[in-house]
Design a protein around this nucleic acid. Structure first.
Lengths: 181, 181
DNA sequence: GTCTATAAGGTGATAGAC
DNA sequence: GTCTATCACCTTATAGAC
């Protein structure tokens, strides 16, 4: 099967997640999608452009198909947190977060993409929380991401999953959503 | 002034913090300490070895000169958290955390050093908490680091310091230490 | 113990055959 | 639209003059 552009973006995301921006090479990416490095440049203009597309895809996937928060915001928020936790558990970390720390200074396009991703992710989480009686939804969204992202550190350093599970429960509890035992 | 080995380690730490392991080059390091790249190899065996020394120095600096927790553990813990927050605020992130995410697979020595650093940092935090009536000190230490490290994400991505300050207050409050307004 | 020079190989990206 | 070959440059690390 010939690799679609989406396949390339997905493979790039995997690489960025595993090795960061600097550590990921276009050669590795080419091998993963069954092309030569030079052929990759028929499909995309630069390595930097991949950051933009990787983060756009990730934002889309994170929110698409979520139930309407106007109907039951708790249900929606719980599902969102579950999604994030599922990705973090499986993949060990969030690309967006890894790129936030790892994108070099001389890639302004990538830096902007990271900024946009983070701002949009937080805003869309806050939108869900606004449907509830949560006071300061933006702050609640910020603190939720702080705790979930922070917990991936234990996953990366020590392969410990418990901190992430604990924070997931705590994040939901902090907006009044109880987790069944 | 001729650069001492500690100067090299400190400059390496700065580079790792800014650019991660892969993004930091020995040439940049050499320039920062006023040497040629090749001369660096008279002082150290490899780039990887720098990770070990950077993390050892950081662990030492984090705990040295802290007041005895047996006398007043709250005072000691507060000072420790203040130190960590001060470094994160100034430098934007923790080297140990950045390296935890960024050290490549083919540098086992570095990977072990990161592991050791993280385990020791948490254990020594827990030791302080053991002097108090904190139940499950190891868990409290884990969660404190989760939240402080997680907050550096906002610093890195959006230059926002408030999440870190908020978590610092929350971390102290969670073990019964109040913060004056 | 620092320097210049170099080895051996990887980097992102491009040219041009097919 | 993928390929081979190549560009200009960077990477970690070493050899050997001084």
């Amino acid at each position: 099967m010939k690799a679609s552009y989406d396949d390339i973006v997905i493979a790039a995301r995997e690489l960025f997640r595993e090795r960061g921006y600097t550590g990921a090479s276009m050669n590795d990416l080419a091998e993963r999608v069954g092309l030569k490095k030079s052929s990759l440049y028929n499909r995309l203009p630069s390595k930097e452009s991949l950051v933009v597309d990787v983060l756009e895809l990730t934002l889309k996937e994170t929110f698409e198909g979520l139930p309407d928060p106007a109907v039951d915001w708790m249900h929606t928020y719980r599902e969102l947190i579950d999604r994030i936790v599922a990705v973090f558990s499986e993949r060990g970390r969030c690309v967006g977060f890894h790129l936030a720390f790892g994108v070099p200074i001389d890639t302004p396009e990538a830096k902007t993409a990271v900024r946009d991703f983070v701002i949009a992710l937080r805003a869309r989480m806050a939108e869900i929380l606004e449907k509830g009686a949560v006071d300061d939804p933006m702050r609640a969204a910020t603190d939720a991401l702080t705790r979930l992202q922070g917990a991936t550190f234990w996953l990366a350093a020590l392969d410990e999953i418990e901190p992430l599970r604990r924070e997931a429960v705590g994040v939901l509890a902090s907006v009044g959503i109880s987790t069944q035992a």
